[in-house]
Nucleic acid binder design. Structure first.
Lengths: 232, 232
DNA sequence: TGAGGTGTTTGATGTGGCGCAAACAACAAG
DNA sequence: CTTGTTGTTTGCGCCACATCAAACACCTCA
C-alpha cells in the first residue's frame, strides 16, 4: 500500500494505540479500491473474502429477507470499519453493501485478520469497541421500533443521519449523500408512503425541506423536540 | 476463586484458546455470587462496576425507555458472558439484568478487564465473537420487527427460546424458566393481550400449551412452518 | 379458608399506518 | 425536445393491532 499516506488513517479509532511502525506494517496488507456510485462492495451471504475501512464516500448496508423485503442496517461513513464478518467468526457477509456515491475503501483480505490481531492486540480491542457501539445502536433501534410511533422514529433517524453525515449549509443541515424516502422507510420499519406524508407535513411547518433524494433539516431543534416529546 | 472447579468453565467459548494456567490466573480475580430469584444483578445507567459469566440460572436483560416502557433485550443462559459494558468503552450499563430464577454468576471487577485482555488476547478475540453474534441477533430482530407481522414474530421468539432454554419433556419442549406473556410481548414489540390471543389460538390448534408463566411447545415443527411461511 | 396480589383471557371499540392506485416531478439518454 | 425511468406525492379504504375494560385463574400468606 505504498500510495497511501499513513497520516490519513492514523487517527482512526480502529488504529488508536497502534504504533506508527506497526501501522505501516498493517497497511502493507491493504489495497485501496474505488467503488463507483451504485456498485456493490459485497453481497449478503457471499463468501467474506475481505474486510474494509471506508476512506471516502458513503455506503448503504442492507439486509434482504427471504421474501425480498429490504431493511437498511446502517450507512457507512468515512473512517468506519465494515465487512468484518470473520471477526465474528462468520464465513459469509450478513448483509450487502452498496456505494451510494463514488467511494474509496481500504481493503484487507479476510485471511489476514487472525494474523493481524495476533500481532496487534489493540486491533481486537478497538474493534470490540466499534462492534460494541454498533450493538448499542441496534438495541436502541429495537427499542425505538418496538415502542415509538412512526413519526418519532423518522425524526430520530433524520437526526442521527444529520449527526453522522450532515453538511451544514445556509438554510440548515443537509444529508451529505443521496437518500430516498424508501431508504428512510427501510431504516424505520415503515413504508415510503408514510415517510413521504410525514416529511410533507414537516415541510409545511418549515421543519425540513425535501427534494429528490435530498433532505435538508431547517430546524433541528424543533425536530429534536418532536423526537423526544412523549405522546400527548 | 478457590472454591470453583476450573473444569466447569474451561469449555466456555469465552475461555477457548486460553491455557489452563492462564485460566487459573483469570479466575483468581473472580468471585461467584448468588442472586435470588427476582434480584437485580445490575441496573441500567448505573456505574459498570463488574462484568459477569452466568454459571447457573437465568436472567432477563431489559431496557426501559424514558417514559417507562420496557423492552426485553435478551435472556441470559448459563455460560453466557454479560454486563461487559466496559469492553465497549462504556462506563455505565446500557440495560438492567434481573434473575428470573435463583442464579449464580462469576463476577469480575470491571477494572480488571484491561489487564486481563492485555495479558490474554484470546479473551478479546472470543468476546469479539460473542458480541458479534449478539449484534447479528439484534439485526435479525430489527429485520423481523420491521417486516413481519406479530404472529410470526412470536413464533420466532418462541422457537428461539426453545432452542436456548428448552427442556424436552414428555409432551414437548418447555421453556426452562418462568416467562410471562408480558415478557414475550416485550421481546416481540407487541402487547401482552395480543400475545395471549395468539397463544390461545395456538393452544386450540394443539400447537402449544400455556400456563401461568409457563409455555410448552407441543408441535415445534408446525410452529416452525408457521414462523417461516410467507403471508398468504 | 379467605383475601389480596399477580398473571391470563376475552370482548368491544378505535385507529395508525399499510396497501393500492394514480398522478406528478425530476432526471437521463437519445 | 421527447420519451422512458425513477423517485415523490396524495387520496381512499381497510385491517391488524392497540387500547380500554372486565372477568377470571392461580398462588401466597395470614
Amino acid at each position: 500500500m505504498p500510495n497511501l499516506d499513513k497520516s490519513l488513517v492514523a487517527h482512526l479509532p480502529i488504529f488508536s494505540g497502534v504504533a506508527p511502525d506497526d501501522l505501516t506494517e498493517i497497511l502493507r496488507d491493504a489495497q485501496s479500491i474505488r467503488y463507483a456510485k451504485g456498485t456493490s462492495v459485497f453481497q449478503q451471504d457471499e463468501e467474506a473474502h475481505s474486510f474494509f475501512v471506508l476512506l471516502h464516500g458513503h455506503l448503504r448496508v442492507m439486509k434482504v429477507t427471504p421474501d425480498g423485503q429490504q431493511v437498511v442496517v446502517r450507512f457507512v461513513t468515512p473512517g468506519d470499519l465494515f465487512g468484518i464478518a470473520m471477526a465474528m467468526a462468520r464465513t459469509t457477509y450478513p448483509a450487502s453493501a452498496v456505494a451510494v456515491v463514488d467511494s474509496v475503501a481500504l481493503v484487507w483480505p479476510s485471511a489476514a485478520w487472525p494474523r493481524l490481531v495476533a500481532k496487534h492486540p489493540a486491533l481486537a480491542v478497538n474493534t470490540l469497541q466499534t462492534i460494541g457501539s454498533r450493538l448499542n445502536d441496534a438495541h436502541t433501534r429495537v427499542v425505538e421500533i418496538s415502542t415509538q410511533q412512526v413519526e418519532k422514529r423518522v425524526a430520530h433517524a433524520l437526526l442521527r443521519l444529520a449527526q453522522q453525515a450532515g453538511r451544514k449549509g445556509e438554510d440548515g443541515i443537509q444529508i451529505d449523500f443521496p437518500i430516498s424516502r424508501q431508504d428512510i422507510a427501510e431504516m424505520t420499519g415503515t413504508t415510503l408512503h408514510t415517510v413521504s406524508r410525514i416529511l410533507s407535513g414537516w415541510e409545511d411547518q418549515g421543519l425540513v425541506e425535501g427534494g429528490r433524494q435530498k433532505i435538508t433539516i431547517r430546524d433541528p431543534h424543533k425536530l429534536f423536540i418532536l423526537a423526544e416529546r412523549s405522546v400527548d
